[in-house]
Amino acid sequence: MSTFLNVLYIIVPLSIAYAAPLIFTAIGGVFSERSGVINIGLEGLMVMGAFVGIVFNLFFVDTFGAWTPWVSILAAMLVSSIFSLMHAVASISFRADQVVSGVAINLLGIAIALFSVKMIFGKGQTDFIQEKIPRFNIPFLQDIPVLGPMFFKSVYGSSILAISVAILAWFIIYKTPFGLRLRSVGEHPMAADTMGIKVNRIRYIAVLVSGGLAGMGGAVYAQTMTNDFGHATINGQGFMALAAMIFGKWHPIGAMGAAIFFGFAQALAINSSSIPFMENVPSFILYILPYVLTIVALAGFIGKANGPKALGDPYVKGSR
């Protein structure tokens, strides 16, 4: 029993650490897709966030001291948000195919980031950052037996932030007028337009929010997991966040749950050789688990996952 607990003490905090960037990015995806704009570009936006986060951290560590990682996350949020404007303009105003535009964002994100890294550092990856995202012990809760050390000891500050963002997103999307408008332009933009809602404005805001959140996700991942930036830093995390969004049925809390589960799968995959009863399970099964589950979820084997109705259609005023 005690070995089992010891395993959990390693796996659970690692799962939460892996989940945090996925939560940010998946929630970003929820905003964009709920407004009716497909965002395949999450991966590229996340790459951009990771790159900006690391570079900002490296250059301004003397100015901001211990606050550097947080300011870096903010900077990553801003830059990725601006970067996502490209996707917004293309898919909302220029009526581009949103999937193609997202693919372009993905290719462009990694290309710009690597181009800049080579220009600034003269090599394929950055130096390592000195100031990482701090870990906290949550007072009182950490003293709970069993659960305390699992969930509340040396938690990354970013994980707490991620869960707060998910709850906040749920509140915004389901409890505020803005959230109602957001959902309505994603379901039936013409009806929303007739009610005086500015469809394209809401969609622009939604895509920019998704860019910002994906940027935060990228910066968090880079500053907790890799501590530098190179071509393989993000490597699919954005697509896994996309999977989490779908697996969570386009709902912020659902996306968070899926993200935590996918984080758990990643943590298990990395540690499977050192876990007594997992050593015979090939690690690739755990690696592909999130993707397989997403396909299964989409196929409707565990409750049909249906996206917003107007997903992928640019809104053209006056058309039927």
């Binding site: 581009a96 193609v100 372009a104 290719l107 462009l108 290309a111």
Partner: peptide, 18 residues
């Protein structure tokens, strides 16, 4: 840096999409 060509390719996709 070699990545400039990846930037150009991504931009071409973006413009064709638009």
């Amino acid at each position: 840096p070699i990545e400039i060509v990846s930037i150009v390719i991504a931009l071409i996709i973006f413009f064709v999409a638009s």
